[in-house]
């Protein structure tokens, strides 16, 4: 009986959570699209989310590109197809690894920061104070972060794509003996607009997920410093899982008809 009650409670709290998230999502979207918009806040957030994430995302992309070309070279050599390595690296980075790795890194960096900031504002009653000053917290806190993340992630991914391919290029030409000119030709000739574009669509979705999870968990945090810590962890974990799930769904949608 106790076990059944436990299952029951679990299911109930799951539904409650999904319901609360749905309401939050609705409010967030409504306040994001309805005027007024705080352009200054959006810009501030874009700097925080985008510019400050450049080093992390750049380094991740660089090393991944480098590792990728090594692996694909080994794999390719088993079919005497080493020469395809540059094109496959470019495809892998732009379609898959660029957006996913940038998304995960930014989830760790920015999702956590958003949850911690909003969580602290919640437990120190700053969000209540906003409301009493006739300012809607969704409009002032949530909407700018959502907009900024959706706009910024694709830009970050463009940078990640470029640096990732460059990582592959450097490792490929320095340690695998590719000719520099033919590496570039192999990359540029092979890659299509859709490869890059689909990665950017993914990035925008990931940006939305990161900001939404950060805001949601922060907004509803309770119970002092411990609660803020929990909110931060939850924001990162749920954003990461949702990014990977969304990546699968988007990949199957975006690439099935190609």
């Amino acid at each position: 009986m106790n076990f059944l009650a436990f299952i029951g409670r679990l299911v109930l709290s799951l539904f409650a959570e999904v319901g609360r998230l749905s309401v939050f999502l609705k409010d967030a979207v409504v306040h994001t699209v309805a005027p007024p918009m705080y352009f200054r806040l959006i810009f501030e957030q874009m700097v925080k989310i985008g510019y400050n994430s450049l080093p992390v995302v750049g380094l991740t992309a660089f090393f991944t590109g480098g590792a990728l070309v090594l692996q694909i070279y080994v794999g390719g050599s088993r079919f005497n197809a080493e020469s395809t390595a540059p094109s496959i690296v470019a495809l892998g980075i732009t379609r898959e690894l660029g957006p996913v790795l940038a998304g995960l890194m930014v989830a760790g960096r920015v999702g956590a920061a958003i949850a911690a900031e909003l969580g602290t504002m919640r437990v120190t009653e700053q969000i209540d104070a906003l409301t009493t000053l006739a300012t809607n917290p969704f409009k002032y806190l949530v909407a700018p972060r959502l907009v900024a993340a959706v706009l910024t992630l694709p830009l970050l991914v463009l940078v990640a794509d470029t640096i990732g391919v460059m990582g592959g290029f450097i490792v490929g030409t320095r340690s695998l003996g590719f000719n520099e000119g033919s590496y570039i030709i192999n990359t540029v000739d092979f890659i299509e607009f859709d490869d890059v574009f689909s990665g950017l669509v993914k990035a925008a979705v990931f940006g939305f997920i990161i900001a939404l999870m950060g805001c949601y968990h922060g907004y509803y945090s309770q119970g002092g410093a411990q609660g803020v810590g929990r909110a931060t962890t939850n924001a990162v974990v749920t954003a990461s899982i949702l990014i990977l799930a969304a990546n699968y769904i988007l990949t199957s949608l975006l690439f099935t008809n190609i």
């Binding site: 504002m121 120190t124 009653e125 700053q126 209540d128 104070a129 906003l130 409301t131 009493t132 000053l133 006739a134 809607n136």
Partner: peptide
């Protein structure tokens, strides 16, 4: 919001931004 715009509140913990 209309009602709140006519009110001011000092929070126990100040709650400064």
């Amino acid at each position: 919001d209309e009602v709140l715009s006519k009110m001011g509140m000092l929070f126990q913990g100040a709650a400064l931004f």
